[in-house]
Design a protein around this nucleic acid. Structure first.
Lengths: 180, 180
DNA sequence: GTCTATAATTTGATAGAC
DNA sequence: GTCTATCAAATTATAGAC
């Protein structure tokens, strides 16, 4: 992978996380990288190719950090804490929400190729979380997995909006201690 | 308020909830209402005027339904259930996420006027929820309020993405029963 | 791989007639 | 209050030289 290609992906991710799919333009990416927009098209022919590549790389990095659930004899609580901490570090790195959470919110206008990459991220997250509750009833496990994932997306979005990591910390705390 | 003005607000809300601020154009609104884009500008001079009016109307309707917390001697559980049900009905009406949740995710590219209306919606929600926990320690109450609000935003976003109300139902269930 | 140049489209916004 | 006509700017994308 050429260095230019990586720089393009970096810039594209930055702009999508700033304002979504439509806030990421070939010209602005080109300026950020120090080339012209026609050169960006050389690496990624269309915008959906570019956005899909950004989402794929984001998902892969995310899953590598997560690893296999409960692999090292960790407890369920340990793993949930680690999961919440991953969203936390995704936020504090640049003060932005989750790439795939942002793209999810504009699914109706995304090209099919991009939408399927975003759906794959959500699916992978829920599958990973579901394995933590493997000893519970299957539908209960799925419910908890869906809840933890969507809660984290809501919390990282609120943290980004208010530029305040407390929203993520509050969510982790309430998931552990309960609300009622 | 003229009927045309209401129709414009209806169309604008529909398009913003479909794909965000940039997916809402004067020309498409005009076509939906049956007039020309220049006539839309007569009612709302700039796009930020229009989007701010949409967000204000959305917030007012939302708060009217919520009413005063615990006013009729309802329990905390009753009120939380009612709060969750309001997000549920906001979804099932059109299969879309919350208007202000969607706009929140692109805060970086919103005009100041729109951003402040969106912030007002979040503030009003958290304030309303906070009153439910008035007998708890103040910081605990705020934490729970922030969590319930951001959880609902995450859940309605996931329900809209997957066109499946289960994500909202799962969130309500887990808020009541806890995860761990 | 990068460039210049440009095509085709869409956008928010305005002027002025009726 | 609505219209026609138009502008200036931005967008994705392509052709072809170097």
């Amino acid at each position: 992978m050429s260095d230019t290609r990586t720089q393009i992906l970096d810039a594209a991710e930055k702009f999508i996380r700033r304002g979504g799919y439509n806030d990421c333009s070939f010209r602005e990416i080109a300026t950020a990288v120090g080339i012209k927009s026609a050169s960006v098209h050389h690496h990624f022919p269309t915008k959906q190719d570019l956005a899909a590549a950004v989402a794929l790389r984001y998902t892969e990095n995310f899953l590598v950090i997560l690893g296999q659930p409960l692999s090292a004899g960790a407890t369920v609580k340990d793993e949930i804490a680690r999961y919440c901490a991953l969203f936390r570090s995704a936020f504090v790195a640049g003060g932005r929400a989750c790439l795939c959470g942002i793209l999810s919110n504009e699914a109706a206008l995304l090209p099919e190729l991009v939408k399927s990459e975003v759906a794959a991220f959500a699916q992978a997250n829920v599958t990973w979380l579901g394995k933590l509750f493997a000893d519970e009833e299957v539908e209960t496990a799925r419910r908890k997995a869906r809840f933890i994932y969507s809660s984290m997306q809501g919390a990282i979005g609120a943290s980004a909006l208010n530029q305040d990591v407390r929203w993520l910390d509050d969510a982790a705390e309430c998931i552990f201690r309960g609300v009622l």
